[in-house]
Amino acid sequence: MAASVDASPAAAPRTPQQPQKPRTLADLIGKAMTPLCRKRGFASVDIVAAWPEIVGPRYGERVQPDRLIWSRRKDADGEDIAEPATLLVHTDGPTAMMLSHETGQIIERINAFFGWAAVGRIKIAQKPVMPRPKSRPRPPRPLTGEERARLDRQVEGVEDDRLREALRKLGERVIARGDAGKRS
C-alpha cells in the first residue's frame, strides 16, 4: 500500500518568498516588551504603560514601578499558595515620604486595575526616576472670520463680561480642535 501524501496548503511549509500577514505595531512592541516585564515580575507591560493613570498626576511622573516580588510559599500538600505580591517602586526622598502615607490607596488602585488582589504591599526605594518624555499638544489653529463671527453671535446674549469671555475662549478651542484630525 502506498502512503498518502497530504497536499493541503496548511501542511505545506512556508517558503521564504511568501509574505507574512501585516501585524500592528502594538503587537510587535508588546511582544518585545513582555519578556522584559516578566523578568521584572510583571505579567505584561500593561501596568508600566498605564502607571500614570493608575496612580494619578501626583505620582505618575515622580514614582516608577520597578518590579513585582512574588512570595513562594507552599502549603502542607506542596501546592503553591497564591499571595499578593510586593510592588517595588522607586522615587526621590520627599515623594517617598508622601507616598508612604498613601500606599493603601495606591494598592487599591493597582488591584482595581488588575481586577484582583495582586499587590498586598508597596516597598519604596529612594532612587532617581527616569523622566517620561512629554508630548506637547499642538497649538490650536486660528479661527476663520466666519467661525469667529458665528461664535460672537452665540455668546453675545451673555450679560456677564467674564463669563462671556470665558465662553468665547472655550468656543475657540472647541472649534479649532473640531477638525484637528483633518489637518496635516
Rank of each mutant, 00 (worst) to 15 (best):
residue 2 A to K: 04
residue 2 A to S: 11
residue 3 A to L: 13
residue 4 S to K: 08
residue 5 V to I: 13
residue 8 S to C: 00
residue 11 A to I: 06
residue 11 A to Y: 07
residue 14 R to F: 06
residue 15 T to L: 15
residue 18 Q to T: 08
residue 18 Q to G: 02
residue 19 P to Q: 03
residue 19 P to K: 01
residue 20 Q to P: 02
residue 21 K to Q: 11
residue 21 K to S: 10
residue 22 P to G: 03
residue 23 R to E: 13
residue 23 R to C: 00
residue 25 L to F: 09
residue 27 D to K: 06
residue 29 I to G: 03
residue 29 I to M: 10
residue 32 A to D: 07
residue 32 A to K: 05
residue 33 M to C: 06
residue 35 P to N: 09
residue 35 P to C: 11
residue 39 K to P: 02
residue 40 R to T: 05
residue 41 G to Y: 03
residue 41 G to E: 01
residue 41 G to W: 01
residue 41 G to M: 00
residue 44 S to R: 02
residue 45 V to A: 14
residue 48 V to I: 14
residue 48 V to D: 00
residue 49 A to F: 09
residue 50 A to V: 05
residue 51 W to N: 10
residue 53 E to H: 07
residue 54 I to W: 01
residue 54 I to V: 14
residue 55 V to D: 12
residue 56 G to M: 06
residue 57 P to N: 15
residue 58 R to W: 03
residue 60 G to A: 03
residue 60 G to M: 00
residue 66 D to R: 11
residue 67 R to G: 06
residue 68 L to H: 08
residue 69 I to K: 05
residue 71 S to K: 11
residue 72 R to C: 08
residue 73 R to Y: 09
residue 73 R to I: 07
residue 74 K to V: 15
residue 74 K to R: 15
residue 75 D to M: 01
residue 77 D to F: 09
residue 78 G to E: 13
residue 79 E to A: 12
residue 79 E to F: 10
residue 79 E to P: 00
residue 81 I to N: 04
residue 82 A to D: 10
residue 82 A to R: 08
residue 84 P to R: 00
residue 87 L to M: 07
residue 88 L to D: 15
residue 91 T to V: 09
residue 91 T to E: 04
residue 94 P to R: 13
residue 95 T to N: 00
residue 95 T to M: 14
residue 97 M to W: 13
residue 98 M to T: 13
residue 99 L to K: 04
residue 99 L to A: 02
residue 102 E to G: 08
residue 103 T to V: 13
residue 104 G to I: 04
residue 106 I to D: 01
residue 107 I to T: 09
residue 108 E to T: 11
residue 109 R to Q: 14
residue 110 I to A: 04
residue 114 F to T: 00
residue 115 G to Y: 00
residue 117 A to F: 08
residue 117 A to S: 11
residue 120 G to I: 07
residue 124 I to G: 07
residue 127 K to N: 13
residue 128 P to L: 15
residue 132 R to P: 00
residue 133 P to M: 05
residue 133 P to W: 04
residue 133 P to A: 15
residue 136 R to H: 12
residue 138 R to E: 15
residue 138 R to A: 14
residue 140 P to C: 01
residue 140 P to T: 02
residue 141 R to Y: 00
residue 144 T to P: 04
residue 145 G to Q: 14
residue 146 E to V: 10
residue 146 E to R: 05
residue 147 E to K: 03
residue 148 R to N: 07
residue 149 A to F: 07
residue 150 R to Y: 10
residue 153 R to K: 12
residue 155 V to G: 07
residue 157 G to Q: 11
residue 158 V to Q: 06
residue 159 E to Y: 04
residue 162 R to K: 13
residue 163 L to H: 09
residue 163 L to C: 05
residue 167 L to P: 02
residue 167 L to C: 06
residue 170 L to W: 03
residue 170 L to M: 14
residue 172 E to W: 05
residue 173 R to L: 14
residue 173 R to H: 12
residue 173 R to V: 08
residue 175 I to Y: 02
residue 176 A to Q: 09
residue 176 A to N: 07
residue 176 A to V: 09
residue 176 A to P: 04
